[in-house]
Design a binder for these strands. Structure first.
Length: 507
RNA sequence: GGCGCAUUCGUCUAGGGGUCUAGGACGCCGCCCUCUCACGGCGGUAACACGGGUUCGAAUCCCGUAUGCGCUACCA
């Protein structure tokens, strides 16, 4: 390559709903490639299918991309000199290009209606023949086609695939896919295809070529489902005498049953994961790792690190199954190493709506930070934080007492002794506000009750948290004690209040 | 049916002729840590689709078969 073109790549979604994880990965690969080559990442909206495309969907896709922290250099909202970036706003351009093809004899008007085509397609399929267009209108010749057009017959514009002997633009199509290597199609394997629909809208294969050329796209990185379309597209490039970009076809993302990932596999849009408490950095990391791996073998990496190591030749050509469990694990890795104050800020709205934070203030924030820090070790996603914090704000002694898992413990007479000792100590000396004070408390209860180990700690835990499970008591006790005195948060019962309630429930 | 792509542990992958009795990660199992649940640490389980070549030597190269997937639309 003597004159390397500036790297310009594009992500070209159809706005028909939220961004799918497959689309997100394609966007990520494009973005990583652009950034690693100091190139431009362009966003283009492919909304030529007016039935399915909506402006609302477009806004959602843009939001999803922003959530992933993928910024586009050109595109809707960002602007750019190659705009407009919405195909629906480029109609005259496609019309003009189609006219060129019509004039050079590489395309022609076709008046066949859909019903007839459908019937012919079925027939050739039954005859075990490739269902190519039978060239009815091509055989009509220019004159007859003109007459039909003037008579006002509805028509589409078809591209003519040259098969005639001696056609100068004849030949098999071959590309050197950056992920898959050389791919060849015999020229016989394709029928004449539609460029412009009867309503004047371009088809995907046409608009994509026109736009990729005009937007000076150097590398087309897209999903494998477009691989065989490349055949048609290269033919258009040739007919227009345009340079053909590099291609890289990324494999599909599959569900557990190894079919293309879809709704019935569960959550498939990035927004669903966002709502479910996944972190964008984790999502980006996981998706980047699905089909690509950095040379150093690291699995947890930042976007910056990925950019530094990214290359298409390390992208796997085989399809990959989306593993929600690994995503969850990875999200947990990110979540656990996050500062608790950051997490607290992110869930603060949620806490306010649940009336857990009533006034706020520095003391409340500090207390909440500690609370979050206490529970984040056990969380894999943001949405688990609030439920994990709930035991601090709600204490239902009656429910605890009747819990089938807890009742056996209560039935044990030693349990009662520990709880009574705990109650006595708490009411005489007050609740602990440090881990050390808690340790001292536990030691005194141990001596007073004669219990130790599980027999000592489980009763204490249940009497104060209402549950068999939870964060370590040495931090829970001080947190509860301080919480009961901290303004700006919902009322937190102190350890003493809890034990009293528990004893009352015991009867 | 035709055309195309793919095929390493259950899953994501490393591997680009000898260093592979195939490495890592998730999951699963066990042990340790421990008042519990987690976290964390340690260990274990488990794979080169099959058949032919090429080669002194193949997970790695070639061909075929099988299987899966995609395209074959006036969807993208």
């Amino acid at each position: 390559m003597t004159h390397p073109r500036p790297v310009r790549v594009r992500f070209a979604p159809s706005p028909t709903g939220h961004l799918h994880v497959g689309g997100a990965r394609t966007a990520i690969f494009n973005w990583l490639f652009a950034k690693s080559h100091d190139g431009s990442f362009i966003l283009r909206i492919e909304d030529t299918d007016q039935q399915r495309s909506t402006r609302e969907s477009e806004a959602m896709v843009l939001d999803d991309l922003r959530w992933l922290d993928l910024h586009w250099d050109e595109g809707p909202e960002a602007g750019g000199i190659h705009g407009p970036y919405r195909q629906s706003e480029r109609m005259e351009i496609y019309g003009g290009m189609a006219r060129e093809l019509l004039q050079s004899g590489r395309a022609y008007h076709c008046f066949c209606d859909e019903e007839m085509l459908e019937r012919k397609r079925k027939e050739s399929e039954e005859a075990k023949q490739p269902p190519h267009y039978d060239l009815t209108c091509w055989k009509l010749g220019p004159e007859e086609r003109r007459q039909k057009a003037e008579a006002g017959d509805k028509s589409v514009v078809r591209f003519h695939v040259p098969k005639e002997a001696g056609a100068s633009f004849d030949g098999d199509v071959h590309i050197d896919d950056l992920i898959r290597g050389e791919i060849v199609w015999k020229k016989e394997s394709l029928g004449d295809f539609i460029l412009l629909r009867s309503d004047g809208m371009p088809t995907y294969n046409f608009s994509v070529v026109v736009d990729d050329h005009l937007m000076e796209i150097s590398h087309v990185i897209r999903a494998e489902e477009h691989l065989t379309n490349t055949h048609r597209q290269v033919l258009i490039y040739r007919a227009m005498n345009w340079p053909v970009p590099e291609f890289a076809h990324v494999s599909l993302i599959l569900g557990e049953d190894r079919t293309k990932l879809s709704k019935r596999h569960g959550a498939t849009s990035v927004s669903q994961y966002a709502e479910d408490g996944f972190l964008p950095a984790a999502m980006l990391n996981y998706l980047a790792l699905l089909g690509w791996s950095p040379p150093d073998g690291k699995e947890i990496f930042t976007a910056t690190e990925a950019i530094a190591h990214f290359s298409l030749d390390r992208v796997n050509a085989a399809p990959a199954v989306f593993d929600a469990q690994k995503l969850l694990w990875m999200n947990g890795q990110y979540l656990r190493q996050m500062p608790s104050s950051t997490l607290r800020r992110q869930i603060s709205r949620e806490l306010e709506m649940a009336d857990l934070v009533t006034g706020g203030g520095a003391a409340a924030e500090e207390w909440l930070d500690e609370a979050v820090d206490l529970v984040q070790k056990g969380a894999d996603k943001m949405s688990q934080l609030r439920p994990a914090l709930m035991f601090l704000f709600h204490f239902d002694a009656a429910a605890a007492v009747t819990d089938p898992e807890i009742s056996p413990l209560i039935a044990d007479s030693d349990t009662r002794i520990v709880i009574d000792a705990l109650h006595r100590d708490l009411s005489e000396r007050g609740g602990p506000v440090t881990a050390e004070e808690y340790q001292a408390l536990a030691e005194r209860v141990k001596i007073a009750s004669g219990a130790q180990g599980k027999k000592l700690f489980m009763p204490i835990r249940v009497a104060v948290t209402g549950s068999l499970h939870g964060p370590e008591l040495a931090r829970t006790f001080p947190l509860l004690e301080k919480g009961s005195r901290t303004p700006g948060i919902a009322r937190v019962l102190s350890p003493l209040e809890r034990v009293e309630a528990f004893r009352a429930a015991l009867g």
